[in-house]
Design a protein around this nucleic acid. Structure first.
Lengths: 233, 233
DNA sequence: CGGTCTGTTGAGTACGGTCAACAACTGTGG
DNA sequence: CCACAGTTGTTGACCGTACTCAACAGACCG
């Protein structure tokens, strides 16, 4: 008895069409956990004891380099499965997951995966698909970093963040959680200084509007033009 | 009747312990294909009609950026499964696979995967593991490109190539297939000029020895020191 | 032997990283 | 309510890595 009601999965399309009994079986070994803003759900290098499904909030996945620099791998949105190291035959988490706002997540012990996967083949194939998508994304980033200047990478990062976790506000789309220049620098492989300069320039041209850890994209079209290498108009 | 004998899988440890009948069932829909040096096994963007198992040779997986620059994703060695786009719910290949030496590979129609995977669960989990390993590798590359100078990335690339596809020769380990400065540049996100300069410098210090598309690592220890950020001795 | 592919080396330059100083905003505790 | 510390953002000056372009030199192949 997990105390988790199947209604929490109701509006996730990954589980649309599942029978109530199956959902209950899936949820039985799970328990819901709340995380304060800033709390870490797991740390890079720690034993991969649980895997998670984000229900609400936003989670930042980051890695630390051997010399102590941090880079941001991705941001996780509600409905995504993460912390699946154990399913890939890793014994420890390869990254750190941090709640950037208050979060709600379901957690399963890693040990129950084989049983669940055997019972629900859709889980396995969904996981493969998700890992495949991340691989495609990682390869795209490698390509960008190898061939494109910081300006384009940043424009693309902002577009991705707004598309994925954006909230419409008047005059634009705002990224739905706090992002600092430092965070953006760590996403695109640059520094907070360069990011700050670019954002300032874009702000004065009216492409974006930004405050403390808060970013609104006003002209996605022009940002897109920058991202795709279209020259300055 | 595929004409492929199960003995071709004999020395691949992924298939160690498989029953003869199972191997035959696995191989039934496969056929062996030979590729000349320089031939492409499939092209980025083409429909993902087949997936492959490399039996002999070396294959380069590369991607083309929208503006026509190429980057090398990885080199595939015998025993590896590749071209598995369809299994990740992609309809086209995300990269181009080119034989860098004469190659022999088994090819299966993508359409037989679901059936095989259902029959042999080890295939699915092996695939997930393989994709997971590639994801880890891609993320490691993103980190390197974001934080490390070209010199270290190149040292690391050479060590990886020799470890993975090296052949012992007197006085060192040689990369078992032709690699040009251009190829190395595309691997580490740099240019053939910078690679050439670094290799020249290392050659004069006796760390490597290189000829036309041919590279021998003489002092992996010192290359390692460069890769890990150990300063010049 | 000519053409192509590969590698070398030099000169110039710029993108973006580093460091420093400061400003503005946020939240906390006295 | 104010003072203060901590966080975040801005801007300037400097400079180095590595990219670009050009010219050339061997190696390999038909």
């Amino acid at each position: 008895m997990s105390g988790v009601d199947r209604s929490v999965l109701a509006d996730l399309k990954a589980f649309a069409g599942w029978a109530a009994a199956d959902l209950d079986a899936l949820l039985a070994p799970a328990h819901a956990r709340r995380f304060d803003k800033g709390a870490s759900l797991f740390e890079q290098g720690a034993p991969a004891e649980s895997f998670f499904l984000l229900l609400d909030g936003h989670v930042q996945a980051s890695k630390l380099t051997p010399d102590g620099r941090q880079i941001v791998i991705r941001y996780i949105d509600p409905g995504e499965l993460f912390g699946i190291a154990a399913q890939i035959r890793e014994t420890t988490y390869p990254a750190t997951a941090k709640a950037v706002v208050e979060c709600l997540a379901l957690a399963w012990p890693s040990s129950v995966w084989p049983e669940l996967a055997a019972k629900f083949p859709a889980l396995s194939s969904g996981l493969l698909q998700s890992v495949g998508a991340r691989l495609a994304d990682a390869n795209a980033r490698v390509m960008e970093m190898a061939t494109e200047p910081v300006e384009r990478r940043l424009a693309r990062a902002l577009l991705k963040l707004t598309a994925q976790s954006g909230r419409s506000v008047e005059g634009g789309v705002e990224i739905d959680f706090p992002v600092t220049r430092q965070d953006l620098g760590e996403m695109v492989g640059s520094t907070l200084f360069t990011v700050s300069r670019l954002l300032s320039a874009w702000e004065s041209e009216g492409l974006v509007e930004s405050g403390r850890a808060r970013i609104v994209v006003r002209r996605p079209d022009r940002l897109s033009a920058i991202a795709e290498g279209g020259e300055v108009g």
